[in-house]
Simulated scan of single mutants.
Amino acid sequence: MSIAPIVQSVTVAVPPDRAFAVFTGSIGRWWKRGMTIGAKPHEDVVIEPRAGGRWFERDEDGTETEWGTVLAWEPPGRVLLGWQIDAAFKHDPDLTTEVEVTFVPDGAGTRVTLIHSRLERFGESAERIAAQLGGGWPGLLQLFADLTEKDAR
Rank of each mutant, 00 (worst) to 15 (best):
G82H: 04
F23T: 13
R121C: 13
A88G: 06
L140K: 04
F23G: 14
I85P: 03
F122L: 03
T102R: 00
W73L: 04
D106L: 04
V112N: 00
D17R: 09
A108W: 00
V104N: 01
P76Y: 06
M1F: 14
P5F: 07
K32Q: 15
L133C: 05
A4G: 06
S117A: 14
E127I: 02
T65N: 12
F144Y: 12
T11N: 06
R128E: 03
V22Y: 05
Q142H: 12
I3D: 04
T113Y: 00
A145W: 11
G123E: 12
L119T: 02
T110C: 12
I129Q: 09
R118V: 04
L141Q: 07
L141R: 02
F23M: 14
D61F: 14
P105C: 09
W30F: 14
D86H: 09
T113G: 01
E57P: 06
G123M: 13
V22T: 10
E120H: 04
P16V: 06
A19E: 02
D146W: 08
A13C: 07
F20T: 09
D86L: 08
V10F: 01
F144N: 11
P49A: 11
L147A: 13
R153T: 11
W30M: 14
R118F: 01
F122A: 00
L95G: 04
P105E: 06
G139F: 11
E124V: 03
A130L: 11
A126K: 02
P16N: 07
T11Y: 02
T65F: 08
L140N: 08
A51I: 01
G134E: 02
A39T: 12
T96W: 03
E124P: 01
A51Y: 05
E98M: 08
T65Q: 13
E66S: 13
L81S: 07
R121S: 13
A87M: 00
W30V: 14
G136D: 02
W31M: 14
V99C: 09
E100T: 06
A88W: 01
K150R: 15
A131I: 04
E57M: 09
V79Q: 02
V22K: 03
I3K: 01
D86R: 08
P16D: 03
G123K: 11
G38W: 01
F122Q: 00
D151L: 15
L81N: 08
I37L: 10
R33T: 15
E48M: 00
G53Y: 13
E57N: 09
P76C: 09
T113F: 00
K150H: 13
G68H: 02
T96M: 14
A13V: 07
T65I: 12
A131T: 08
G34H: 13
G135K: 06
G136P: 00
G34N: 11
T110Q: 11
E43G: 15
L80H: 01
R33K: 15
G68P: 04
W137G: 03
G139V: 12
W31Y: 14
S26Y: 07
